[in-house]
Design a protein around this nucleic acid. Structure first.
Length: 564
RNA sequence: UGACCUAUGGUGUAAUGGCAGCACAGCAGAUUUUGGUUCUGUUAGUCUAGGUUCGAGUCCUGGUAGGUCAACCA
């Protein structure tokens, strides 16, 4: 769990982000007795994504660092959008990431208290029932440059307001007919302070409170007070809530309740990635992906299925940093984090995605040789496993070129390469079918070249992966690429649907060959298929039908050389 | 045409009035039975104009640029 912070101050201390500075200052001043309590407050209206992961790591990480705790609170104030399906997935994802909340709360737990406070505000002449239509409320709010106009219902007596508000709760009025608003200032330069709506009438079934309510509090009226009820010390949210802060403070001040403080940080943006829940939902509903956990999705469950580890996501959250300026993180940083983790932990296996048959003409027919292959060169404790060498083999089709360019140091007619952990082989003959397609290579091997040696001390630059024909089983291999082809997926030509930016090649399924022992694996086990990248076992995989997802490619320097 | 937030290499993020550093990406080299890893080196930055100060990325003022706000969403 200990995350490395790479930024170091000149005095050698770890660099702090601005939130850590605020908290340390608060602790120093004895605020709340040095207590730190944060919260992660998702609305259960969708699955969590990598942006939420940043927020989770921040909220839980801060509490851990300063000896505090973190609550999980579902912001379930809008019954028309929310569902228990999302509640369950959110809890699962947070735990998978490696965090445990101190308490599981729901904004709906506080509906009665919130209601009582609303009556109090009415009695204080700080709230009123407005009968204006939704349209009129919008019109009379003014614009960012023009002040709004007072509602004709703004000066109702407290008695009348109380009566009306109680009847709203009792269900006497239809949806949209009336709202409860705070009485602040219709000319306030901050639009949020122009008599914000506190309650609206929604005759809908709520996933937790059922049908006991037909009026529901708005976010602004629920969030700060929920923080306050839980005695949250540091309420951390994203930048767009910045303009809500005066209102957050207004309720706490007028109600004279626990003074939670809101702090804002910049949300995560990733190149080639859409992060909006609304858009991700659209991709799912319109069938562009197989579901919220499609391995191409930036959701936590999608990344998990893709083979990302919790450690890699936490490391990523740590490296992107926390600040208040808008940012777009390069996707290559996320890829770096998963490679860094998997390089250390993933066992190596042989696999061939696009097989080309090779016959070793000077190797006896029927003979089989056992070779000990290293499981993970980065981790000696991972040990070795047997693989088998025989006369008939498969190599990767891309590892042979009939007319190789300069600097291609794999197999070509007359050249020699090493088969990883096995022998040096030399290509003697290329067999083709009637159409001229290469169907087979005839090679000879150097019997003296085991264990990295050779008969005369010669070395070769190329080392390729391979599989004995007798020791290879078929597997479905899913290769993924980014879902969107533009660096900024929202940057599409005027008037075009945002989905025009989808990458048509984001999924490729191939039938490959893998080591037979791979039949024993279970979902989410991960491996590095030598030279092909990191792969993990899909949920769909079963003994008769192996399915692997490519988590990440290896860094490919050949691609750059070939480009030049 | 309002209020608020923000501005440091290509991308992020430090420097809390005192040598502009780190990571990713890029480039070059060494090692390597993975064109991987590891190691070394390297390119590249304080939006702008003033002011305060012995000294400004940092403080002040103006400008410029980007973002947020006009749901009975959160």
């Amino acid at each position: 769990m200990e995350s490395e912070n790479l930024n170091v101050n000149p005095n050698g201390e770890k660099a702090r982000n601005f939130l850590e500075e605020i908290i340390e200052e608060d602790i120093k001043n004895g605020k709340h007795g040095g207590r730190v309590l944060t919260r992660f407050p998702p609305e259960p209206n969708g699955y969590l994504h990598i942006g939420h992961a940043k927020s989770i790591c921040l909220n839980f990480g801060l509490a851990q660092k300063y000896g505090g705790k973190t609550n999980l609170r579902f912001d379930d104030t809008n019954p028309t959008k929310e569902d228990v399906e999302y509640v369950d997935s959110i809890k699962e994802d947070i735990q998978w990431l490696g965090f445990q909340w101190a308490n599981e709360f729901y904004a709906s737990d506080y509906f009665e208290q919130l209601y009582q406070w609303a009556e109090k505000l009415i009695e204080m002449d700080l709230a009123y029932v407005d009968d204006q239509s939704q349209e009129d409320i919008r019109l009379n709010r003014g614009t960012v440059t023009q002040p709004g106009k007072n509602s004709p219902f703004r000066n109702r007596s407290a008695e009348e307001n109380l009566d009306l508000f109680r009847r709203m709760r009792a269900g006497e009025f239809p949806d949209g007919s009336r709202v409860l608003r705070a009485k602040i200032d219709m000319a306030h330069p901050n639009m949020l302070m122009r008599d914000p709506i506190l309650y609206r009438i929604i005759h809908a079934h709520h996933h937790r409170t059922g049908d006991s309510w037909c009026i529901y509090p708005m976010y602004d009226y629920a969030h700060g007070q929920s923080d306050s009820l839980e005695q949250i010390t540091h309420s951390i949210c994203t930048l767009e809530f910045d303009v809500h802060r005066p209102l957050y403070d207004w309720f706490i001040e007028k109600l004279e309740i626990f003074p939670s403080k809101q702090h804002e940080f910049a949300r995560l943006n990733l190149t080639f990635t859409v992060m909006s829940k609304r858009k991700l939902l659209q991709l799912v509903q319109e069938g562009f992906v197989s579901g919220w956990d499609d391995p191409r999705m930036p959701t936590i469950c999608g990344l998990r299925r893709r083979g990302y580890t919790p450690e890699s996501i936490r490391a990523f959250a740590d490296r992107v940093g926390i600040a208040k300026r808008d940012n777009v993180i390069d996707l290559s940083l996320l890829e770096f984090c998963i490679r860094e983790d998997l390089n250390k932990s993933a066992q190596r296996r042989m696999a061939v995605l696009n097989p080309l048959k090779v016959v070793i003409t000077n190797f006896p027919e029927g003979k089989q040789e056992e070779i000990q292959a290293i499981n993970n060169p980065e981790d000696e404790a991972a040990g070795k496993r047997p693989i088998y060498f025989s006369r008939e083999l498969y190599i990767e089709r891309d590892d042979f070129m009939e007319n190789p360019p300069k600097k291609f140091f794999r197999l070509a007619p007359g050249t020699e390469v090493r088969l990883r952990y096995a022998y040096l082989i030399k290509c003697e003959e290329v067999i083709k079918d009637a159409e001229g397609n290469i169907t087979e290579l005839r090679c000879t091997y150097d019997p003296q070249s085991a264990n990295g040696g050779s008969s005369d001390g010669r070395k070769v630059k190329g080392v390729i992966h391979w599989l004995a024909a007798s020791h290879a089983v078929k597997a479905e291999v899913r290769l993924f690429d980014r879902l969107f082809q533009n660096e900024d997926p929202d940057d599409v030509p005027e008037g075009t649907d945002w989905k025009t930016g989808l990458n048509p090649d984001s999924l490729r399924v191939v039938e490959g060959l893998v080591e037979p022992a791979l039949q024993e694996v279970k979902p989410l086990d991960h491996f590095q298929f030598e030279r092909l990248g990191y792969f993990s076992v899909d949920y769909d995989s079963k003994p008769g039908h192996l399915v692997f997802n490519r988590t990440a490619t290896l860094k490919d320097s050949w691609a750059k050389i070939a480009d030049k």
